[in-house]
């Protein structure tokens, strides 16, 4: 094979058409690979939520009573408070998103800290919600599906909060590069999804059984 390689011609020199030396080192939005990665994640996890809704509706359709006899309806206090907190958390997230687009380190850090505190609050309230389900995960198919829905969404709350904590630490102490501002913007995208996905799930778990 070596002689074949030696005998082949080198590519001819050609005039330059594009000078890349002045191009930036960071791509924003659809120019960034992480933007596509987060949208792919949103597509996959959105599909998972659709599947969970389908399972819930199917199980409810074949059950004689929903929730089953002797199980109280899931509590509205913790869950409604959590929806409001989730919606409120969008405000500092949008703030961090915009500050990151301006590459404003101070503002990005401040908004991120507020957003992280609020998302920690949503995790705590999710604990209250689980306690107010009044059913064990292994007690009934009803228990399994509501625990799975709340738990799957909780895993997203935890993942996104951990990401926020990391970004806070990086903004405050880390060797910051421009690409980390891109990370803040796509992390915001992910949080918008986590909040938006919860609204229909909240209506499904807490209001559909009350609707009759």
């Amino acid at each position: 094979m070596t002689d074949a390689r030696a005998a082949t011609a080198e590519p001819r020199a050609a005039p330059a058409a594009i000078d890349a030396a002045r191009l930036p080192h960071v791509g924003w939005g659809p120019a960034a690979a992480v933007w596509w990665a987060v949208w792919s994640l949103i597509t996959i996890e959105g599909t998972v939520f659709v599947l969970l809704v389908t399972v819930y509706v199917y199980l409810r359709g074949i059950a004689t009573a929903w929730p089953p006899e002797g199980i109280r309806l899931p509590g509205l206090a913790g869950s409604t408070a959590n929806v409001l907190l989730l919606l409120a958390s969008v405000v500092p997230t949008v703030g961090a998103h915009r500050a990151a687009l301006r590459r404003d380190r101070r503002a990005t850090t401040h908004y991120l800290v507020v957003a992280t505190v609020l998302s920690l609050g949503t995790i705590a309230l999710r604990g209250v919600e689980l306690a107010q389900l009044h059913v064990r995960w292994d007690g009934h198919a009803y228990g399994s599906i509501v625990w799975t829905i709340l738990g799957t969404h909780l895993s997203h709350l935890v993942a996104s909060t951990l990401e926020d904590v990391l970004l806070c630490l990086l903004m405050r102490f880390g060797p910051l590069e421009d690409r980390h501002y891109v990370d803040v913007t796509v992390s915001a995208l992910y949080w918008y999804f986590v909040v938006a996905a919860w609204i229909p799930l909240y209506l499904l778990v807490y209001w559909l059984p009350r609707a009759g």
Partner: peptide, 19 residues
């Protein structure tokens, strides 16, 4: 005419990203 891209550094692992 064949044309080329210049300005990509070769001392680091740098690649050109397009839309």
């Amino acid at each position: 005419a064949a044309t080329t891209v210049t300005g990509i550094r070769s001392e680091v692992r740098e690649i050109l990203v397009t839309t």
